[in-house]
């Protein structure tokens, strides 16, 4: 049995240069958009959601194409996706817990 047989079954061919270049162009455009959003005064009210969407798009593009999650075995996606989800949950909980702390138990400067 050829050792690479199983590999080929689960790991599809990785893409070649043209795909990578296309992704790079999209990433560059998204980054330019991000910076534009940052400097555009009229977008300030929706700055946060816009930036998050743009960053998410970049994140997904790099993970899917440069890191080949789109092509490789699904096990890698879950290997990365589950910790990511957990990290988001932990981060969000920490932010909420400290928001409560700041709101109800306002920081005191100690004296000694």
């Amino acid at each position: 049995m050829n050792p690479h047989e199983g590999a080929q079954a689960l790991e599809h061919e990785h893409p070649q240069a043209p795909v990578y270049l296309a992704v790079a162009v999209v990433l560059t455009v998204l980054t330019v958009l991000e910076i534009a959003v940052f400097y555009a005064p009229f977008l300030q009210p929706v700055l946060v959601p816009l930036l998050i969407v743009l960053a998410l798009a970049k994140f997904v593009l790099v993970a899917m194409f440069y890191m080949h999650l789109h092509y490789d075995a699904g096990v890698f996606t879950s290997l990365f996706g589950f910790p990511l989800l957990l990290a988001l949950l932990i981060g969000a909980s920490l932010l909420m817990l400290f928001a409560y702390l700041a709101a109800h138990l306002s920081p005191v400067i100690p004296y000694l």
Binding site: P83, L84, A87, L88, L94
Partner: peptide
């Protein structure tokens, strides 16, 4: 890398 996700999540939060 999954482990690193949690690492950076703690730093970033």
């Amino acid at each position: 890398l999954g482990s690193e996700c949690v690492f950076f999540a703690c730093l970033i939060s």
